[in-house]
């Protein structure tokens, strides 16, 4: 095993995780080890990004088999690269795909895996702080002297440019994917519905406090009036009021809007895991002791069914 840290990101016809590369490279740089960035289907400006954030090396891996979202091929490609480089740590961004890819790669490397990482430190061994119990606790895991595969939560690390740009050693690398036939056949692909919650600057989220599926319309109208998107807590997704692609939280989407308005949402840790990084949180809840008010900058205590129509009016008054 070398002292190197490999940050790995990928893109395919379904998802683009390269946007997390600056955060991963910054996290790796903080551990005072040489940083190598493995970019699978790399973006055009990868070399410039590597230089800005201080990766010493950039390995570009392009392969037609990796353009389709195909976990078997991706796992094989990353595992081959990691087996050859034998890094100390392999960092991946915690995306939907990473939840499957990270443990599988770890198993092939005989490595330890930790998901939900929010900090990585080195002092006589690597220690990873991850959230547990939905965010109610933090757990610190020691990796011993094995390779670690770590999935870093979005937004956990703030990307910062390297103090001084240094030359990046760039190489085009290949993987032998002849043995990685995809075993899962896609019969009906998901149809992405345009705008992504992850990109929204304003999000209005509704919870069970709305009282009925029909009242979700209030959330949509307020989101519209603020030029944002509507989202939801898990119970109202489970109850079929809203499509699951709208769910925010530990098992939904992780978002970082500048404004997050939570309406009839209790603020359980598993919900906050998806939105606590919002710049400003505004909450409307009839219970003054609701957990959401511990995260909110502004709060209104009251019945959201009465208050939201007035918020819509006030928002339109601009």
């Amino acid at each position: 095993m070398t002292g190197e840290i490999v940050a790995c990101t990928w893109s395919n016809d379904r998802a683009n995780a390269h946007t997390a590369a600056p955060e991963l490279i910054t996290a790796a740089r903080a551990l005072a080890a040489p940083v190598r960035w493995l970019a699978v289907n790399p973006p055009h400006d990868a070399a410039a990004t590597a230089e800005t954030y201080g990766a010493a090396a950039l390995d570009r891996l392009s392969d037609a088999a990796l353009l389709r979202a195909s976990p078997d091929a991706l796992v094989e490609a990353i595992a081959q690269h990691a087996a050859a480089r034998a890094p100390r740590l392999l960092l991946v961004p915690q995306t939907f795909d990473a939840r499957l890819v990270a443990p599988r790669v770890a198993h092939r490397l005989g490595a330890g895996v930790v998901m939900n990482a929010i900090a990585i430190a080195e002092d006589g061994g690597v220690r990873v702080t991850a959230s547990a119990y939905g965010g109610d606790t933090r757990a610190v895991y020691a990796l011993g002297d094995r390779t670690g595969v770590i999935a870093v939560m979005p937004g956990a690390v703030e990307a910062t440019a390297a103090p001084s740009p240094s030359p990046v050693h760039t190489a085009d690398v290949t993987a032998d994917l002849s043995g990685a036939g995809e075993r899962v056949r896609v019969l009906e692909p998901a149809r992405s519905e345009g705008a992504r919650l992850e990109d929204a600057d304003v999000i209005v989220a509704g919870g069970r406090g709305l009282g009925s599926a029909a009242n979700f319309r209030l959330v949509e109208e307020l989101a519209g009036a603020l030029g944002g998107m509507a989202a939801a807590s898990r119970p109202i997704v489970d109850d079929g009021w809203v499509d699951s692609s709208r769910q925010i939280g530990l098992t939904g989407k992780v978002v970082r809007p500048s404004l997050y308005v939570a309406v009839g949402v209790s603020g359980a840790s598993q919900h906050m895991a998806g939105c606590s990084a919002a710049r400003t949180i505004v909450a409307v809840n009839r219970d003054r002791d609701a957990a959401i008010f511990r995260h909110a900058r502004f709060g209104i205590v009251g019945d959201c069914v009465e208050i939201v129509p007035e918020l819509i009016r006030a928002a339109r008054e601009a």
């Binding site: 490595a111 330890g112 895996v113 930790v114 220690r127 547990a132 965010g135 109610d136 606790t137 933090r138 757990a139 610190v140 895991y141 020691a142 990796l143 011993g144 094995r146 670690g148 606590s276 511990r294 995260h295 909110a296 900058r297």
Partner: peptide
Amino acid sequence: RVRLERMYVPEAGG
């Protein structure tokens, strides 16, 4: 391979 060393409760929000 992964040893839970300690656990703590994070600070509540502002």
